[in-house]
């Protein structure tokens, strides 16, 4: 059997060495998995994605990518660094951070240009992606002129053009209207159907069954408290309640108030 894509052992990370952000994380993700990292705000999901993308490194414990230890030293090797960046792509939560070029087109081709992919190949991929995402009329626009949904699409295009084996997504559906959301979910599905790995961080219970087959739940202690297939974990009301993922929902139906746990899940 091939080595897992990611293997994290007793991983700890803190900001500035004093504010704990992740503690004792043990996580194994196999190639081709479609996983969601689910947790309320402040449970360290984004930080975990940044660890997986090797933007920050653990204070203690280890992270391995396809069996290779990830640490600051190995990224000093330009060849390794480039290879890793080609194989793993992260879509940031805030598209304003991800889109830093004057035009949409320059933003989309930034990654492959940096990674030394041939110019002809880049143009081919750009053409193809623009078609799939239906963003042809956006390519010559400026990022600040776009709507939230359009920015999100462009952010995703800027990562997909690298054709990574592993796609990391940080709250990809936040702030999107239902139609754009659907389009995005289909895109993720297609990507996964090509045998690639998708890891999504989200707090939106409603989206989880769409985004993932497997689930890891992070709790307030910033560690993974539960792991398993989506449908098992989502059926466990106590677990969800303990981790602030459901709340009592009070609303009006036909003039009378009515209360029930709100779980954002269609099941």
């Amino acid at each position: 059997m091939s080595k897992p894509v990611f293997e994290l052992e007793d991983l700890n990370y803190s900001y500035l060495g004093k504010f704990p952000a992740l503690s004792d994380i043990n996580l194994k993700i196999e190639a081709g998995e479609k996983v969601a990292l689910l947790g309320a705000n402040g449970t360290g999901k984004s930080t975990l994605l940044h660890i997986l993308d090797a933007l920050v490194f653990p204070d203690a414990g280890s992270i391995r990518f396809s069996g290779q230890d990830l640490n600051e030293n190995v990224f000093n090797d330009e060849k390794f660094s480039r290879d890793f960046r080609r194989r793993v792509g992260l879509v940031f939560q805030n598209p304003d951070v991800q889109l830093f070029c004057p035009t949409v087109k320059e933003d989309i081709v930034f990654g492959p240009l940096q990674l030394g992919i041939a110019q002809n190949e880049i143009k081919k991929r750009l053409d193809n992606l623009v078609e799939i995402l239906n963003i042809r009329d956006l390519v010559n626009r400026q990022p600040h002129q776009l709507s939230v949904g359009e920015k999100k699409k462009v952010s995703i295009a800027s990562v997909l053009i690298i054709e990574p084996e592993v796609l990391l997504l940080d709250e990809p559906t936040a702030g999107l209207d239902p139609a754009t959301c659907r389009q995005l979910l289909d895109l993720i599905d297609d990507f996964h159907a090509q045998g690639r790995t998708v890891i999504t961080a989200t707090h939106d219970l409603h989206m989880v069954p769409e985004l993932a087959e497997d689930l890891r739940i992070l709790n307030k202690e910033r560690t993974i408290t539960a792991a398993g297939p989506c449908k098992d974990l989502l059926a466990n009301q106590d677990l969800l309640k303990q981790n602030n993922l459901v709340h009592i929902h009070k609303h009006r139906h036909d003039g009378s108030w009515h209360k029930h746990p709100h779980q954002h899940s269609p099941s």
Partner: peptide, 8 residues
């Protein structure tokens, strides 16, 4: 970070 992530 966003630049680094895309190979800058």
């Amino acid at each position: 970070d966003a630049m680094l992530s895309r190979g800058y």
